[in-house]
Simulated scan of single mutants.
Amino acid sequence: MCRLRTASAGNLTTMQSVEVTARLDASRTSAVQVLIADCEAIDGFRPVSDQFWIDLAGDDHDVVRVLLIDRHHPDDRGIVQGCAQAGLTAGSWTVETVLHPALRPQLAQLATMMLRAMSDALRHRNSAEWSWLVFAPTPAHDAVAAAFALSPTRRLYQMTRPLPTGLTFDITTRAFVPGQDDEAWLRVNQRAFAWNPEQGGWTLDSLRARIAEPWFDPNGFLLHERDDRLAGFCWTKVHADNTPPLGEIYVIAVDPDFHGLGLGRQLTLAGLEHLARLGITHGMLFVDADNTAAVGLYDKLGFSVHRTDCVYHGRIGRSDTDANAPTSRRPA
């Protein structure tokens, strides 16, 4: 355990320490969930991925957590002011961090503290590489990433548009049936996302974990079949806690055997129409910034970029002592 004195930030003050653990008890899990809710209330979006959220309450041995604790608190265990969590996907660790909004002026110092503890914990594990996923990064995030020799390797656009679209489409879909369509969906997902281990590496457990989430609605999980095969799908998600509620194209893909038929456009519009029928007035999706074909399609469908997220990547164990020159830049 290491300790670091920090400047005062309102009532959140003085001294933080880090705890590295593979498991959280119910009290610590709840504290991190409250921390995430505090950030969401300020930012208007949840600052962690669905995978982070699922892993947070899980007991996976391939998850490592670092908690930032204020020890100057009446609670003997201290108060959780930050959390870093790492999960192993396709042989590489993905780290996400969350910090209480009142401590953001000290982001560079405190994020460095959590990432250094995480680096020390991961260097003895079974991967030499790690990525840091940051939602809406700032120059402070860029500086921290550079200090760990992490370079921006992937940018994700969150694109939004009002609903309904007023656009026509001609495609037949049906609802996903859990337990019946699982294997067929996994095959198409793996084929369509062979280039993306994070999504293409989903297993039956990954799918079932999402199905178990309270937001899951099979009627919003649209399947399109051709020649007695699953040709493509559009999986939607409603963010009911947003004000107003937000409808997301959660995952969308077409089997490579059915490329060139315009199914991507048709499935997108089918998904957006489903959301509009639920009374949702704003739709959104995430897309890799360098996927120019998809970005171009969504632009033609009336989407615009609302937010840019970034993935920084590098080798575990490198730090500011190894990185004398800047290796990161502000995402465009």
Rank of each mutant, 00 (worst) to 15 (best):
R104Y: 05
P105Q: 12
P105V: 04
P105K: 12
P105I: 08
Q106L: 08
Q106N: 12
Q106R: 10
Q106S: 15
L107I: 13
L107G: 14
L107Y: 01
A108K: 11
A108S: 15
A108F: 08
A108L: 11
A108Y: 08
Q109V: 10
Q109F: 12
Q109R: 15
Q109G: 08
Q109C: 09
L110V: 04
L110F: 01
L110E: 05
L110S: 00
L110R: 05
L110K: 06
L110P: 02
A111G: 11
A111V: 14
A111R: 11
T112F: 02
M113H: 13
M113N: 09
M113K: 13
M113W: 00
M114S: 09
M114L: 11
M114F: 10
M114Q: 14
L115H: 04
L115R: 04
R116Q: 13
R116W: 15
R116F: 13
R116I: 03
A117E: 07
A117M: 00
A117T: 02
A117L: 00
M118H: 00
S119L: 03
S119N: 06
S119H: 15
S119T: 08
D120I: 02
D120L: 05
D120W: 07
D120S: 02
A121D: 05
A121P: 01
A121F: 03
A121N: 01
A121T: 03
L122S: 01
L122W: 03
L122K: 00
L122V: 03
R123A: 13
R123H: 12
R123T: 15
R123E: 15
H124M: 13
H124T: 15
H124K: 15
R125K: 09
R125Q: 06
N126P: 10
S127H: 01
S127D: 04
S127T: 01
A128L: 11
A128K: 09
A128M: 12
E129W: 10
E129K: 06
W130M: 08
W130H: 09
W130D: 07
W130T: 10
W130R: 14
W130S: 09
S131G: 08
W132I: 07
W132C: 04
W132R: 10
L133W: 05
L133P: 01
L133S: 11
V134K: 04
V134D: 06
V134F: 02
V134G: 08
F135S: 09
F135T: 01
A136G: 06
A136F: 10
A136N: 10
P137V: 05
P137Y: 06
P137F: 04
P137Q: 03
P137R: 06
P137G: 00
T138Y: 04
T138F: 04
T138C: 08
T138K: 12
T138M: 12
P139G: 05
P139C: 05
P139L: 10
A140Y: 09
A140D: 15
A140I: 03
H141L: 09
H141A: 10
H141D: 15
H141Y: 10
D142R: 15
D142S: 14
A143M: 08
V144F: 07
V144C: 02
A145L: 02
A145P: 00
A145H: 02
A146R: 06
A146D: 12
A146N: 07
